[in-house]
Simulated assay, not measured.
Amino acid sequence: MHRGLKPLLALAGVALAAGCAAPSEPQVTFYSHGRSVTVAPAQYCDPTGKNCATSSGNMVGELRVPSREPLQISVPAEVAAAPWQVAFIYRGVNGEELDGRSSVFRPHERFAYTLHLPPDGAQFEHVEVQQFSAVLTPGADGGVDFGIGGSWILDVHQ
């Protein structure tokens, strides 16, 4: 498990305050157990990490995902045109809060992803699609981190 989800979410919040003009706002669809929700971005910036906008629409989706069920995610071409990943928080069977993330998908590599949790009864709590921008920041452990240029957020209910 990678424990860097919370700093990335904080970085996304910093980027929210940096914007001005609004690029178009692609939407991401989350699907599980016969139901779906389409979510506008909580933030969306141009590829340089500038001209950021927050959505006036449904910025946090809600969806019921029963334990042991997968969550399917569909992204439009505007999201898949840049590197993106799925970050998530879930609760293990012992009640411990855990987090993880998918690999980073290269531009135009994928337009959909199915997220599975361990089959032991773990429960999703929060899922975020993160699209990377060209903005680089010094990494906490050396190296560099790419900024989050777009994020689509889902809160999960059991």
Results as ranks from 00 to 15, higher is better:
1 M>W: 09
3 R>D: 10
5 L>I: 11
5 L>P: 00
6 K>P: 01
9 L>M: 08
10 A>M: 04
12 A>I: 05
14 V>M: 12
15 A>Y: 00
18 A>C: 13
18 A>P: 02
18 A>S: 13
19 G>C: 05
23 P>D: 05
23 P>Y: 04
24 S>Q: 09
30 F>Y: 14
31 Y>S: 10
33 H>M: 01
33 H>V: 05
38 T>S: 15
38 T>Q: 15
38 T>N: 08
41 P>K: 00
42 A>Y: 00
44 Y>T: 08
44 Y>H: 07
46 D>H: 10
47 P>F: 04
49 G>W: 06
49 G>Y: 05
51 N>T: 07
54 T>L: 15
56 S>M: 12
59 M>S: 12
59 M>R: 14
60 V>I: 13
60 V>H: 03
61 G>W: 01
63 L>I: 04
67 S>L: 07
73 I>C: 06
74 S>P: 10
76 P>I: 04
77 A>K: 14
78 E>T: 01
80 A>D: 10
86 V>K: 04
86 V>P: 02
87 A>D: 10
89 I>E: 09
89 I>G: 11
91 R>C: 00
92 G>K: 06
93 V>D: 09
94 N>H: 06
95 G>F: 02
95 G>N: 04
96 E>Q: 07
100 G>C: 09
101 R>D: 06
102 S>G: 09
106 R>W: 03
107 P>L: 12
108 H>D: 14
110 R>M: 05
120 D>W: 10
121 G>T: 13
122 A>P: 12
122 A>E: 09
131 Q>T: 01
136 L>R: 15
137 T>H: 09
141 D>C: 11
143 G>Y: 07
144 V>M: 06
145 D>Q: 14
146 F>L: 10
147 G>W: 05
152 W>S: 00
157 H>D: 11
